[in-house]
Design a protein around this nucleic acid. Sequence first.
RNA 1: UGGGGCGUGGCCAAGUGGCAAGGCGCGGGACUUUGGAUCCCGUAUUCGGAGGUUCGAAUCCUCCCGCCCCAACCA
Length: 556
Amino acid sequence: MTDETRPSTFIRDIILEHNRTGRFGGKVITRFPPEPNGHLHIGHAKAIAIDFGMAREFGGRCHLRFDDTNPTKESQEYVDGIMRDIRWLGFDWGPHLYHASDYFEQLYQWAEQLIRAGKAYVDDLSGDEIREYRGTLTEPGRPSPHRNRSVEENLDLFRRMRAGEFEDGAKTLRAKIDMASPNINLRDPVMYRIRKATHQRTGDAWCIYPMYDWAHGQSDSIEGVTHSMCSLEYEDHRPLYDWYLDALGIFHPQQIEFARLNVSHTVLSKRKLLQLVESGRVRGWDDPRMPTLAGLRRRGYTPEALRDFAERVGVTKSPNVVELAYLEHCLREDLNKRAQRRMAVLRPLKLVVENYPEGQVEEFEAVNNPEDASAGTRKVPFSRTLYIEQEDFRDPPPPKYFRLAPGTEVRLRYAYIVKCTGVGKDAAGNVTEVRCTYDPDSRGGDSKGRKVKGTIHWVSAQHAVESEVRLYDTLFTVPKPDDAEDYESVLNPASLEVLTGARVEPALGTAAPGERFQFERTGYFAVDEDSQPGRPVFNRAVGLRDTWAKIEKAAG
RNA sequence: UGGGGCGUGGCCAAGUGGCAAGGCGCGGGACUUUGGAUCCCGUAUUCGGAGGUUCGAAUCCUCCCGCCCCAACCA
């Protein structure tokens, strides 16, 4: 991308300005700081793209740092998942893997430094009392009765906190800032709390754990991070971020906030995502309906599409809800260029070619990808009994319908032009099979100048591989489920439809999990890990644009 | 309500005093052995609102309105 066409972002402008003034000596070091208490989702993809992308663009580097300051909520399972997902997305932190817990000792020493400077004190107030003393949005808070303990007493108490002499919640270490500050974060924020819990990395070495604000900026400083990007809700925390760094007199990174990404028809809060998993509404963190990177990957999304999306939605400070259609567009655009085409009949309807010799089999050459000649061709077997899509036959046909109907002609892709000669129905009047005759002169689908509007896909009944196809719809029926009073009521009961009798062309029988294809005229599908030898399972990642569906819908 | 942010077409988003980019979506057309893809064309006399400054304002000033975030020993 050239400088002229590259979207400008205010973050890039800030970095450019820093480079111009020499604030960080031209260095750009960023970090992506997930807390290992959940899996990464599409919103994180944007943050990752910004953190790693800015560093890459300016020839710097991006650290991966786990913000593991709350042992009661974090686990190794999440750590592993997060690293796997970031790598899959296409980013690499090289040797720069860090943990806030790497800095626990340094943080502790710095806390003592603040105590000695009279800028921190041990408080005996309970959680409820701290809240009471903090005041409200409109009323200032009141000082804790323990706010003016001597340095010696504070030091002694804090050391005993570390030594485990007090019970959980009995004491905290607080920064002594301003109980009347209009910014509530500055009303003597808690720096340490007592938690006699085993940490997934430091084990039982500690029973006091630093709060986010006390850990984050100092971790940035230790690592020499220059630009610390985070989401808008931390804007109110920047004064505190700055206060700690200044009070300590250590290297001072710049925190920059941007608006987090929201996508329509889904939720991205860790709480709600966890609720979906635990309530069993989805099959797990990697359910293809989930907006998690694991879910999107299983669904068939590519890292390229996700990165493209992250770049195209831009970076601003304004609240946003990006339409799902935009994400889907990015996937289609990527897969259109790269995915091989196959024929797959999702809802089979038998089609008998009456004048085609019983037992005869022909093979036709099918193009693997019209967008990429190097993808080559493959053979597709044809015989007297085929399956076509149920929706490709209508009796009577609606206006503008180009597909098969009694008496009409249609092209069987790559094969022959056939003419519908009859319909077989069961006692209830349901169409059970369609009969037709083929035109031997149209071999390969060549109409020889004749006008044949419709072309449909098919598979040979005796050669087709039976498979399961999972069709997904949005998890929620409304664009902004977060706005719903009762979010259960906007859950989409039809978010998953399982088709067990799909028939796919033989070439699909050996497809490996993770492979993606375009099923002609239907959509893009990924082979699911639930596939068994001889019985593949496909996930529909996204449908193809469907002009006919629009026409039919418009017609009512 | 005190503080911090944000308001440009249905959704994103450029624009930073000189005559409203682009993408998605939507509508129309061309082409087509995927009703796919591709290619054209159309889609804000107007930038939350009202005043003001200026030859000229989305961009500067004033006031007003709306939305989001903050009162965890979560991050």
